[in-house]
C-alpha cells in the first residue's frame, strides 16, 4: 500500500510534474517590459528634468551592468570602461554623420568594435596574474581620450561631434523622451538578461571561481584565461552599444563626456555602491545615485560647482564602510539572516 503511494507521487500523473515551471528569467522579462512601459508613459508627460533623469538612469544602469560582467562576475577590475562606451558613441556617430549609416547599424558595429577591443585588451593581460588588466584598461581609457582629442578631422577634437536632429525611428532620433526610455530600457533589459543567463549557467560559476581564487579554479578544471576573455568580450561589446544610444540621445559628443576618466569612475562607483557581482547591484546603484546626482546638480550646480562629485565621494565612502558588499549585497544578506532566524525559532 505504502509502495503504491510512493509510486503515485513520483509518477507522471503527479501534478507537480505536469505543471511545467515557467521558463527561466521570464519574471525578469515580464517585470522589465512592464517597468519600461510605465517609465515611457511617465516620461512622455513628466517635466523635462525628470524625463532626462529617467533616460540617464537607464543608460548608466546598462553601462554599469555591462561593467559588472567583467568587473563583478569575473572580479577583473576595469578602470577604463569609458573606453568602450566612448568607442561605441564615436563609432556610430562618425558612421552616421560622415557616411549616413543608420545608428541602428552603427549600434551593431559598435557592439562588434567594443567586443573586439575587450578581447584584444584581454589577450595579453588575462594570461598574467596581478593588476595588469586593471592597468591596461586604465591606459586604454586615457589613450582613447587622447585619440579623440587629437584626430580632429574624424572626431572634431575638443569641439566634438553634433548629430543631426532628423527625427524618426530610422535615425534613432526623437524630440520626445519616451522613445529613448524604450530603447535604453530595452537595452538595459538585454544586459540584465545576458547577465542572468551567465549567472545561472556553468559560465557564471566558473567566473565566480576565478574571481575567488584563480589557481583553485584552474585546479577545478576552469580554463580561467578563456572564461575571462569571454567575459571581457561581452562586457566591452555591451558597454559600446549603450554608447551609441547615449550619443543618439544627447546628440552631441565630446571626448570628456564619453571617454573621460570621470565616466569610468562613475561606472565603477555605481556598480560597487549597488553591489558588484550581483545581478541587480549596478542597476540599484544607478537608480539611487544618478537621480541623486542630478538633483544635487540642479539645486547647487550654479552656486557650488563640484558639490555633486563631493556628494558622490561621501556616499561611496559611507557605503564601503557600512556595506562592503554593496547595498544589494546588504539587502540579500539581511534577507538570508531573517530567513535563518525564522527557521531556528
Amino acid at each position: 500500500m505504502s509502495q503504491q503511494i510512493v509510486n503515485r507521487s513520483s509518477g507522471p500523473i503527479d501534478p507537480m510534474v505536469r505543471s511545467r515551471p515557467l521558463p527561466k528569467h521570464s519574471l525578469l522579462i515580464g517585470f522589465g517590459v512592464v517597468a519600461i512601459a510605465l517609465l515611457a508613459f511617465v516620461s512622455s508627460s513628466a517635466p523635462v528634468f525628470y524625463g532626462h533623469m529617467i533616460v540617464m538612469t537607464l543608460i548608466y544602469a546598462a553601462l554599469a551592468t555591462s561593467w559588472n560582467i567583467i568587473g563583478g562576475f569575473a572580479g577583473q577590475l576595469s578602470l577604463g570602461h569609458a573606453a568602450f562606451f566612448g568607442l561605441g558613441a564615436y563609432t556610430s556617430s562618425i558612421l552616421f554623420v560622415d557616411f549616413g549609416i543608420s545608428p541602428w547599424i552603427g549600434l551593431l558595429i559598435a557592439l562588434l568594435g567594443g567586443a573586439t577591443l575587450g578581447l584584444l585588451i584581454g589577450i595579453p593581460t588575462f594570461r598574467l596574474r596581478g593588476p595588469y588588466f586593471a592597468l591596461a584598461t586604465l591606459a586604454l581609457g586615457i589613450i582613447l581620450l587622447n585619440v579623440a582629442v587629437h584626430f580632429r578631422e574624424l572626431t572634431g577634437g575638443h569641439v566634438g561631434i553634433s548629430l543631426p536632429p532628423t527625427e524618426g525611428w530610422g535615425t534613432m532620433t526623437f524630440l520626445n523622451r519616451w522613445q529613448y526610455v524604450v530603447i535604453a530600457g530595452g537595452y538595459l533589459l538585454v544586459c540584465l538578461l545576458i547577465s542572468g543567463i551567465i549567472l545561472s549557467n556553468r559560465f557564471g560559476y566558473q567566473l565566480a571561481a576565478v574571481r575567488e581564487d584563480e589557481e583553485a579554479a584552474r585546479a577545478l578544471g576552469v580554463n580561467a584565461t578563456r572564461v575571462k576573455l569571454l567575459a571581457g568580450t561581452l562586457s566591452g561589446g555591451l558597454a559600446a552599444g549603450i554608447g551609441t544610444i547615449y550619443a543618439q540621445y544627447i546628440l552631441f559628443l565630446t571626448p570628456d563626456s564619453v571617454l573621460g576618466t570621470a565616466v569610468s569612475i562613475e561606472i565603477i562607483v555605481l556598480a560597487i555602491v549597488g553591489g558588484s557581482g550581483k545581478l541587480y547591484g549596478p542597476l540599484l546603484g544607478a537608480v539611487l545615485l544618478i537621480p541623486a546626482g542630478q538633483l544635487v546638480l540642479r539645486e547647487f550646480g550654479g552656486a557650488l560647482p563640484g558639490l555633486h562629485t563631493l556628494v558622490y565621494g561621501v556616499i561611496v565612502i559611507i557605503v564601503i564602510l557600512l556595506f562592503p558588499r554593496g547595498i544589494w549585497g546588504m539587502l540579500t544578506d539581511t534577507a538570508a539572516l531573517i530567513n535563518r532566524r525564522r527557521k531556528h525559532s
Binding site: R202, A208, R211, E212, D213, E215, A216, L220
Partner: peptide, 29 residues
C-alpha cells in the same frame, strides 16, 4: 588535486564550491 594550504572559494557556498568542481565534466547545472 587538493592544496596543501586549503583554498576555498570563500565568497561561494559549500554547494557552489563543489559545483565548480563538477562543472569540469558537465555543462548541465
Amino acid at each position: 588535486r587538493t592544496f596543501q594550504i586549503v583554498r576555498p572559494l570563500a565568497g561561494l557556498t559549500v554547494l557552489e564550491n563543489a559545483m565548480v568542481g563538477a562543472f569540469a565534466k558537465t555543462r548541465s547545472v
